[in-house]
């Protein structure tokens, strides 16, 4: 194995971290509400576009843009939950899922209708790319920032979920959503908090994505969303560690199918079918994902 193998490892780490950030939000919402929030990918897009607003119109630098966009997106996430999902809390689960699908379509097409079809990017001075060449290995500061930030955000979230009272309440609700309100915990507040955290992470993912791949359009969230959803499920949806790991795994699978494919004579044209087939196999072997716990059904 030569150096380019290591290079691919870094490539995979970058892509995987981005998927992981989006997958985290999917997983948290699912854990608390058992809702596949299909609008999540489009919230990710919205976060990236808010980054354009902050950096181009408000002329903010990188860190304030990231924070402001995360806050605004969190507000959007809570609004969506309040307006579109909350009234359906006692309806059939699938009506909520379809509503989420509708909210996603509305966000992406509304964005297209209101802002036009031109692709966007961030100003050049936003995050100046520097490439470090370490013994034939090319690493840019952007890659490092993305990977580090993703891990920091994940650890922060993990600590919130594991160590704080709010986090405990979240886990409790996902464990038993009928008993917890009886203990004096406000279900609405916890759900709102979950949405705020999940969507803020999606916004962070969106801005980092926009930095790494600076061509933004209103449909950018669709594919990322579907893929992150798959990552979250493979990791075991409902578990933050699983989601993060699933995201990283998806990144590695996508990159290494191309890398290893050339040794066995498979062209990179087969990347998508093979990547998805691999994930399918994981699901068949472990039907509830890597970290998922099979919910015992009471009979």
């Amino acid at each position: 194995m030569d150096l380019s193998f290591l290079q691919q490892f870094i490539n995979a780490l970058q892509l995987g971290s981005l998927y992981a950030l989006v997958a985290l939000g999917y997983s948290m919402v699912y854990g608390v509400l058992l809702l596949i929030n299909f609008a999540h990918g489009d919230i990710f897009m919205f976060g990236a576009f808010l980054g354009v607003f902050c950096s181009m119109t408000l002329k903010l630098p990188f860190v304030p843009t990231l924070l402001l966009s995360m806050i605004l997106t969190a507000l959007l996430g809570m609004t969506i939950e309040r307006v579109a999902y909350k009234p359906l809390r006692h309806a059939s689960r699938l009506s909520v899922v379809i509503t989420a699908l509708g909210v996603g379509l509305l966000l992406e097409n509304g964005m297209l209708a209101l802002t036009g079809a031109d692709p966007r990017n961030y100003p050049e001075e936003f995050l100046v790319t520097t490439v470090y060449n370490i013994g034939g290995l090319s690493i840019s500061n952007v890659k490092i920032i993305i990977i580090v930030l993703a891990f920091v955000l994940f650890l922060g979230l993990y600590l919130i979920v594991q160590r704080t009272k709010w986090g405990m309440a979240m886990r409790a609700i996902s464990y038993d959503k009928f008993a917890v309100p009886l203990m004096g915990v406000s279900q609405n507040q916890i759900i709102a908090l979950t949405f705020a955290l999940g969507t803020a992470l999606a916004a962070a993912g969106g801005i980092l994505w926009g930095v790494a791949f600076p061509v933004l359009n209103p449909y950018m969230g669709m594919r990322v969303g579907w893929k992150a959803f798959i990552a979250a499920v493979v990791g075991g949806i409902g578990d933050v560690r699983g989601a993060f790991l699933g995201g990283l795994l998806l990144g590695f699978v996508e990159i290494f199918v191309v890398e290893l494919g050339q040794y066995v004579g498979i062209s990179s044209t087969w990347r998508d079918p093979i990547a998805f087939a691999l994930l399918l196999i994981i699901l068949v072997v472990r039907p509830t994902g890597l970290f998922g716990v099979a919910r015992r059904q009471k009979v």
Binding site: S4, Q7, Q8, N11, A12, Q14, L15, W209, A212, F213, V215, M220, E254, I255, F256, V258, E259, Q262, S268
Partner: peptide, 10 residues
């Protein structure tokens, strides 16, 4: 797709 790093590395 927006990430071409693996193909470009190859």
């Amino acid at each position: 797709d927006t990430d071409f790093s693996s193909q470009l590395t190859n």
